[in-house]
Design a protein around this nucleic acid. Structure first.
Lengths: 197, 197
DNA sequence: AGCACAAGTGAGCGCTCACTTACTATTTTG
DNA sequence: CAAAATAGTAAGTGAGCGCTCACTTGTGCT
């Protein structure tokens, strides 16, 4: 008894998080293929072999880091959009969720943004893909007459482009400060696109 | 004198364009790093060495293909935006130029779009960069009161996001048909963003 | 103290890659 | 038409990559 809340992970130098941070930075700067396992280990201050104690290989490491953001984003967007409220409110919640995720861990978020091309197969049409889900919502609103009719896929891409391109520009240091501070700007822009005719 | 307009290329099988098309497709599908010179040569139906008759190496080939679109785009956008006309007209001309370029050679255009991350260094602030030029125009319009004031970099990124994300979605086969058919949709969306407050 | 075991090490292995070399075939040129 | 230049081929070559493995170290438990 009187056991302190024992953390199930064991001791040592905690290489894993250091490997992950180093890998993220290198993957963003040079790309997953160009970043070598030696570089990652060196930047993390551990040996190359340590990487393989935690991941099956470089590709699995990259995929895990991508999925960490991707799954989280899927849930957050799902929640934000499915809960009740006006169109405005739902868009605002979704944009807020996206920006919060970005500010919470910018490195992880940046890697996700620049890696979408690699990890989302080019003709994926998965029904539970966040993009496809948003497209269905847009289509439903068009059918219901809540927003003007048009090509739902194109409208969806424009709305996503608002926030994703802003993310890219922040990665390129074209502007600074927390992403969250632009939530209202993004929301207004998206509403303008959805409601325009 | 009396020289006929001699075409400077000489030999029959014309490996060069076949190498370029094969390289574009592979670069888009697998990425520049993952596409091997053997794969490119094989897909082009030539030997690996043929690649080196025309390009110093794989990286130079990729850069040349990127720059072919990038320089052209820079000129076209410069022309479209600098010539006289209302804001609407200038935006419409720029969007039209972009979409024409896409429809004219979709493979070349796709490669440019998916490779921006690789070839535009992350903190580039070149004065003649198309993005920076557009940002200056937006800033000038804000200063002149032609459009509501705001963060010019963020506004610029949102406008670019409209068309670039639509391009990405077309690459992912989320919609089909010529890109040019959406010119008016894009123009209206961009105007909505610029004029909103 | 002594054991069990997870975490970390780093030399080195097999293999793939971009690129080179040696050669042949086809044009262009004077 | 010979010579030079160009465009192509096939068979390498060595650098460097991801990954392995025999080994060492640190930690918790009894």
């Amino acid at each position: 008894m009187s056991e302190p809340p024992r953390t199930p992970q064991s001791r040592a130098s905690n290489a894993r998080p250091r490997i992950e941070r180093a890998a993220l930075q290198l993957f963003i700067d040079s790309g997953v293929d160009a970043a070598t396992t030696r570089e990652i280990a060196s930047a993390a201050g551990v040996s190359e072999g340590a990487l393989y104690r935690h991941y099956k290989g470089k590709d699995e490491l990259a995929l895990a880091l991508f999925m960490e953001t991707h799954n989280r984003l899927g849930e957050m967007l799902g929640d934000a959009l499915s809960q009740p409220g006006s169109l405005q409110e739902r868009v605002h919640r979704a944009v807020t969720a996206y920006c919060r995720l970005a500010d919470e861990d910018w490195l992880l978020f940046s890697f996700h943004l620049v890696s979408l091309n690699r990890f989302l197969p080019h003709d994926s049409r998965r029904q539970d893909d966040p993009v496809t889900r948003i497209e269905h919502i847009v289509q439903a609103m068009m059918d219901a007459g809540e927003i003007p009719a048009g090509n739902a896929a194109v409208t969806t891409s424009m709305c996503l482009g608002i926030v994703s391109q802003a993310g890219q520009h922040k990665i390129y240091n074209r502007f600074s400060g927390p992403f969250t501070q632009h939530v209202d700007t993004f929301t207004r822009a998206i509403m303008a696109i959805l409601l325009q005719k």
